[in-house]
Design a protein around this nucleic acid. Sequence first.
DNA 1: AGCGGAACCTGTCGGC
DNA 2: TGCCGACAGGTTCCGC
Length: 272
Amino acid sequence: MPELPEVETIVSELNAALPGSAITGTRVFRDNALGGVPVADFQEALAGRVFERVRRRGKFLVFDFRDGGHMIGHLRMTGKFILSPPLTQPHAHHRVWFHLDNGRLLIFQDARCFGTLAIVERLADHAPLQRLGMEPLSSGFTAKWVAAALRQSKTPLKIWLMDQSRIAGLGNIYASEILFRASLSPMRPAHTVTGGEPARLHRATRRTLREAIHHNGTTISDFRRVDDKTGGFQDFLRVYGKQGQPCPRCRAPIVKARQQQRSTFFCPSCQR
DNA sequence: AGCGGAACCTGTCGGC
DNA sequence: TGCCGACAGGTTCCGC
């Protein structure tokens, strides 16, 4: 589910509902996400805290509390945050319930248990957050910045795009989709991307993310679910998962390759 | 610097 | 039908 556009979507939905509500109690059904923090400590750290707002940084969700502390969440592969009416029984994948004083339930659900939840009093205390690089939708992310950053690395473009310490928020799906839209090969060493190409990559990154956010995120499962429906974003993905199908631009077959143990999809004919 | 491999977990899907 | 391996949107750590 979660790359930048999906997290952005979740954050804006949470932000429309959470601010002003207080946590009256926390139930932990499985504690993998807590990173070794004892459940009792986690519960105690949250008791009575009031949500001020929710923000996104890279793929992290940052819940700001009114008293200045924060809960930092990461969904990894299968994590989800859900706002729900009160329930009596947890679903099999529910990991944490946050009871709110407005009667609602904030649920952290995660089939694979890779997701993480941490509570910090200062953002600087959260090392993974501090390691994140440029926000691709921020004003600092310019074609000039992209060109300069490309020059400093020999890493293949796809890997280059996914390094969170360089650009924060791009994952396996969007990296492939961005490179397709930029007509650049995922295998190209970053420093060989020159001339007008960095601007193309910059533009494709912004447009792809903005379009995905506009569609409230794109996911594989959602993509399947809407297969027989019209509208929406079923046409969003151009290359991801489409090996063997004709390239939407030049009709050559899309190829599936492997880079750092992850699948890359691209058109070898028009991505150079 | 960069890469391959493994680890953290569970669910699903394709092939035989 | 059933089992088994491959693979899945992420990140980190370790060794070369």
